[in-house]
Structure formats: C-alpha cells, structure tokens
C-alpha cells in the first residue's frame, strides 16, 4: 500500500480544508514547482525531510555486465536525494506500537 498522489490529495482535503478540486490543483502545482526547481539545476532543501540535489555526472567508459560489451556513458545531470538526519533517526527509532 504505497502512498500515492491520490492519497496526498485526500490528506490535503481532510487536513487543510480545501475543496477536492483545489486540493488536487495545489498538489499538482506543488509537484510542478519541485520539478521546475530541480530542472533549473537548483537544489531543494526540505528541512526535517531531506535534500533533493542536482548532480553533474561526467562521461565515463562503462560496460554492460551481461554482455561485457564496452560502452560510452555520456555526461548526465541527475537528481539524488539525501535523507535529513532527523528523518533518518525517526526511521531507525525502535518501532512504537503499530496501529
């Protein structure tokens, strides 16, 4: 049972008190703002949660481990996520009574 966009929209609807339509719109807009930020090459820091970072990877020679064929991996720009220390500790804290 994964957390999905639909469930986030529902949480906004129930917890923030916006209409269903508005809840959907704000979630879509928020996701688009996050993507736009990263697309522009800017990192996104959500304190207490983690940091989305844009990393430049230079081209390198690689190998297909299955066919052992040599290949050239081009330079890329990728997103990596680093979990905040606070969240990391919460995830590793001994589990409380599960609901």
């Amino acid at each position: 049972m994964a957390l999905t966009k639909e469930k986030l929209i529902n949480s906004i609807y129930h917890q923030v008190g916006l209409s269903k339509t508005q809840s959907r719109a704000v979630v879509e807009t928020l996701l688009e703002l996050i993507k736009k930020t990263l697309e522009s090459g800017e990192d996104l820091l959500i304190s207490g949660f983690g940091k989305f970072m844009v990393k430049e990877k230079s081209a390198r020679r690689g190998r297909n481990p299955q066919t052992t064929e040599d290949l050239e991996l081009r330079a890329r720009r990728v997103v990596v996520f680093k979990t905040s220390g606070v969240l990391r500790e919460k995830i590793n804290a001994p589990a409380k009574d599960s609901q």
Partner: peptide, 23 residues
Amino acid sequence: EVVNTVFGEMEKALIRGERIEIR
C-alpha cells in the same frame, strides 16, 4: 499547511516502512 501536510504524510509513510509513489 499544504506543504507541511505533503511532506508530513511522506515522512509518516517512510516511518511505517511504506513505499511512496508519485508519478
């Protein structure tokens, strides 16, 4: 409230050991 709810729900899911899937 919206931003806190979104990241709060994501945090809770991860603490429960649940996956998050945002298309």
